[in-house]
Design a protein around this nucleic acid. Sequence first.
RNA 1: GCGGGGGUGGCCGAGCCUGGUCAAAGGUGCAAGGUUGAGGGCCUUGUCGCUUAGUGCGUUCGAGGGUUCAAAUCCCUUCCCCCGCACCA
Length: 899
Amino acid sequence: MGSKILKDIEEKWNKKWYEEHAFETEHDERKKYFLNFPYPYMNGYLHLGHLYTLMKLEIMARYKKMRDYNVLFPFSFHCTGTPIIAAAERIKEGEEKEWNIMRMMGIPDEEIKKFSDPVYWTQYFPKEAKKDLMSLGCSIDFRHSFITTNLNPRYSKFVKWQFRKLKELGYVTKGEHPVVWCPNCKSPVGDHARLKGEGVRPEKMFLIKFNVEGRVLPCATYRPETTFGVTNIWINPNVEYAIAKVDGEEWIVSKSSVEKLKDQKHKVDVIGRILGSELINKKCSNKLRSDVPILPAEFVDPEVGTGVVMSVPAHAPYDYIALKDLGVDIKPISLIKVDGFGEFPAIEIVERMKINNQKDSEKLEQATKEIYKKEFHTGVLKDITGKYKEMKVSEAKELIANDFRNEDLLVDFWELPEEVICRCLTRTHVKIVDDQWFLKYSDPNWKKRAHEALARMSLYPEVVRKQFDYVIDWLNDWACTREFGLGTPLPWDKKWIIESLSDSTIYMSMYTIWHILKNVPEELIDDDLFDYVFLGKGDKKKLVERGIDERTLDKMRNEFDYWYPFDLRNSGKDLIQNHLAFCLFNHVAIFPEDKWPRAFGLNGHIMVNGEKMSKSKGNFKTIRDMVKEFGVSPLRLSIALSGEGIDDANFDTELTKSLTMRIENLLRFLTSKHETSSEWKVQDEWFEAKIDNTVADVESAMESMMFKTAASKCFFDLQNDLKFYSKWRGTPNDRVLRKYIDVQTKLLYPFIPHVSSEVMEKLSLDGNWPSAKRVEVPKYKKYVETVMNDLKSVKKLAKGEHAKIFVAEDWKFDVIGKDFAEAKSIIEKHVEKSMIGKMLKMYKNGSDLAKSEQMKVLKDSKDFIEKETGLSVEILDADEGDDEKARASTPKKPGILLW
RNA sequence: GCGGGGGUGGCCGAGCCUGGUCAAAGGUGCAAGGUUGAGGGCCUUGUCGCUUAGUGCGUUCGAGGGUUCAAAUCCCUUCCCCCGCACCA
């Protein structure tokens, strides 16, 4: 839909801008402003979420341009990582769900087939995204666009350069890392490749060893400290267990845990099997507990942990209730003191929640969670724990685990808290990948520098700073390589692909030179070139000798030096704890301080009519659909009005629709001829001040990225002011009207540049931001409104066609500003005793306008008042009138007589 | 649990830092009137309650308490909601 008038204008200007290369720029004498967007992932069309974040930058770019900055706004497309490759795979397999996603995007089946090749995604979607961006008239210099992955060797070389640098600095190290692993596919299983268990992560457990007849029973637990309170061991009597040589010892474990142990760096050989029932009633022991009976329990799941569980009835509701069901008389052993509970918290909660038996698993889960939480965070260990007594559970846990590990009592074990099923229908488990590469974000020195960088940055909004500092401290080593996915191979260990957040941390520097680099022969691009261009290091002569044109080299170096660092990077708030934090870390590692980022902008998520946008709700909106539905200008303006700051924004479709007409009307007003007057009245004084203030308000809002405030002030408020002014003034003053048109057009330019450009062209306005002047707005409007309201309410209650308005007597104005006693004595001279109280109130209220101003305002507004109220009006000085209503006048409000 | 952000009139949302000009901007919704062939749009008015030939009163900004001449705004307590807690874009 949208509007034809606006559409024509939008198309006209889009065409003009891109044909004339209006947004292509290189360094010059002006101050520069370089802003960028975290490149969007190219597994679909750009959508409302992108648009919201994007508009922050687009508005800023347009604004800075008006303020005579040299503005660089590049845009690229992200293709590394697993989602594209996984989706391509699913298309290839003909998976219904994936095909439907593509169909919903409006892609015909013939075309969808082509998406079984991941490379096709990297060609198709960037191209389409660019179309969308251009339809919106974004002021992007597309000469700086690239796609990521090794399909783009120049980019890949850059990433390799970056990683070699990081390695030299000692920031890339090798280590272990748990992953969700499919034993059938023999690969890690990301969320996208799961039938069940999306979002489930490996959790660290512990195996506590007990000995039975020369064999080890490893009990899986999250709480090693509870070993002190073990009363028995649970074994499922109906399950066949494996006897296996594990790292030289004979262990009894469930069969499924054999594979887990193998994948978690243990040497495991199965040498026999044993029924659970054969173990029942035997006794086992370890250093801490002896003569511990093995008891049967059907709740023990052989798929979880090792299928061997230790029982701590004092603190584990399951264990207590199982013992109770079994009817065995075993005394629980208490080891944790916790507020609000007595000696045996598990027993208390079971009774309190009225849990009758093991089958009440829902309540048992809940009880277990509550007890665990409470004991972990507020519990204190009792004397029975020996040297750990009086310690908090939360502090002692790791310490105990370490000690137990050293005493050969405990072995680490990773487990999935819920079942995760691979797409191939296989149940997965945790594997320890042991030659994984990490970025050492845990390095204290590195963290310190990241904090320093943050401290000198601007953040929009400022409230995210605390969170950022917290994130920098919280970040741990990041597994930066993958075995699977699109991306750049790790230069020194080619079996690994660099993970897709790790290859995207300093690429904004590439923007500054991409338009040049893309024409440099690929074979000439190497680390030396990047060292020279980005760091000014190395020998330029050698590079030139090798065949790179010297001018090209200088140009790249100059462009980078001019544009970098970036002045603003804006993103959704979800990138704080990963991408943006990484960006900071990597910048401080590689670049000198004067190239560290200047500002981050963060925005919330955007909702549609108060609901989260989602494909399943059917309110998923792509940019192209929205452009079609609402038109470019209403869409742009509505997005700007939808929100600011870190809170979630709301895109209101009703508002957007109503904007179409409002923009059209405004356009018509701005470009039509108006009858004007050269006379200067109070109305003109008021409106001019109002315009000046609006410019000042909007400007300060723009500077701090408060675009909703800015848009609402310059679109709604300023037009409302004009509306009132027109009614009030009748024929507008020539100069003031021209000023309004000029300001209105320009302030709206960042939001609806097509419309503004059209007006500017028609009226030959310059394209500069108006100068802001903060002035005091005279209170004329408020005064007139007061008088009008009074007239109207009086008219409602009394009949009459004529009104006399009495501006208060001189002495009433005299009272204002005097001290209390003096005021009182003046009043006493003029009124009866009974009225003194009332008059003193008037003294307290004061007045915004002097008497002469009031007279002038009323005289200049006479036509307006008569028209609005339908009364014929006389304006009088109360000093010259003798009506009782003249006496009722105050400096705040004149007296009114209707007749 | 830790960290961050919030709770304002039918809804969205400004105000809170720097207390008074706040019954609280603006938008949207709703209602009435005008314009219009109808609808839409646009324009006007109303939209906490009471009262009234006007400038008045009461109750309201999650809840409770406090500071103050004065609190949506400051302090304390409490309840509730949202987001993040990673190896993933």
